[in-house]
Simulated assay, not measured.
Amino acid sequence: MALKTDSLQITPQVLALVAEIDEFKGAWRALGTLAPERLSALRRVATIESVGSSTRIEGSKLTDAEVKRLLSNLEIKSFESRDEQEVAGYAQVMEMIFAHFDAIDLTENHIMQLHRDLLSFSDKDERHRGAYKTLANHVSAFDADGKEIGVVFETATPFDTPHRMKELIEWTYKALNEQSLHPLLVIATFIVVFLEIHPFQDGNGRLSRVLTTLLLMRSGYAYVPYSSMESVIENSKEGYYLALRQTQKTIRGDAPDWQPWITYFLRALQQQKRRLEKKIERERLVLGTLPELSLQIVDAVKERGRVTIGEIVNLTGANRNTVKKHLATLTQAKHLTQHGTGKGTWYGL
């Protein structure tokens, strides 16, 4: 059954959201003129947030600090817990997309390859990674003890999955190439239908967010790696699931209601963009006014999350009293916050 997108209404609200996001997309070349090392620092922070948030949405318990530690040791290629395995797989796939998005077209083979790589460290998923589901995987609700209490949403059957995926990919490819719909609306539609099909036994939510990043970057939204969309979704998880369900239950009907999901999706992109605007403004402010030692201190705090006076002295080789003066200035200007007193004092953003 062909996707019915003729019921997709371009409301004034949708138009305003698309215009705001596209204005930032066009301005990114000017906004993104920070020094390469500053952009790299922004991307590192956003990647940690994205990996942490996307895996926590699916039940992982790792904090961003734990994710950061894990990512600094990815070369070990051996992870004890399922949470660690999922984080390692997600981080590896995101880095591949950032580096090679222009070479990864939207095809069934590429989607299956991304799924395989996403679960490459997950022992439990070894049998089904990179292959469509063979068992029903309806979305269920569970009680506090982990017992299933009912089906929230029925996904495509294993029998229907291959032709529904083929249909979805062909529609998306055609819509993006013919520009019959704005790319943001095409991407939003692809994601909600992909999750309605739920084509793989596991990992569909994480893969949908990987594919969102891929499609956005392929559509020219080059700023995406520097601000975490996954973090926005984690912070509005109830709205995320509500919007998905409201649209998904209508997709196979005569008049699909695309509006709840598309509005949520565009608002999430708006939030992602606004967060990055604030970060860029802060970077500019810092870069334009602070002396070199102060910049080194701010970088150290961004890198580590928190620092002590002794750590800064060791890192920079600067005199202890000089470091104290710079910290006092940074704290007074609200670039940093002081925590504790005496020997237990440390500084954070």
Rank of each mutant, 00 (worst) to 15 (best):
Q332W: 02
G26R: 12
D254E: 13
R43S: 05
K147W: 10
V87W: 02
V139Y: 02
S180I: 10
A35Y: 13
L8P: 03
L215W: 01
V186L: 01
P291M: 06
E108V: 01
T341P: 12
I197K: 01
K279A: 15
Q259T: 01
D145F: 13
V301P: 02
E292P: 07
F121K: 03
A318R: 06
E230F: 06
G288P: 05
K133H: 12
F200D: 02
L242V: 12
A328V: 06
E283G: 06
I312A: 08
H339P: 05
Y132T: 01
L168M: 13
Q201R: 15
V307E: 03
L42C: 03
G59L: 04
E23D: 15
I312K: 07
I251L: 11
S228V: 07
T212M: 07
G239C: 10
Y226H: 09
G59D: 03
S50W: 03
I111Y: 01
Q246H: 04
L168A: 03
E230S: 05
K278M: 08
H115F: 06
Q248Y: 02
W171T: 05
R274G: 10
Y240M: 09
T308K: 11
Y221W: 15
A141T: 05
L70F: 08
F121N: 03
K166F: 13
P158N: 12
G342Y: 13
L290S: 10
D299W: 09
H115T: 09
I169A: 00
E283C: 03
Q201I: 07
A136E: 12
Q179P: 02
L211Q: 01
A103G: 07
Y173Q: 14
L195D: 06
L290R: 15
A16Q: 15
I48H: 04
R252K: 09
V192S: 06
R320H: 13
E283T: 02
A27T: 09
K4R: 15
W261Y: 06
A103D: 13
A318Y: 04
A175V: 06
F194Q: 03
N235A: 14
Q246C: 00
S122F: 06
A156R: 07
R56S: 10
A300M: 11
A268F: 03
N73C: 07
G348K: 05
D123F: 11
A318P: 05
S140P: 02
G52W: 00
V139R: 06
L214M: 13
H163G: 05
E196A: 15
A222L: 15
E75Y: 10
M112V: 00
D117I: 00
V301G: 01
L207G: 04
I97S: 08
L62W: 03
Q179M: 08
L327A: 05
S50Q: 13
R245N: 06
T289P: 06
T155N: 05
A268N: 05
I312T: 02
M96E: 14
T263L: 11
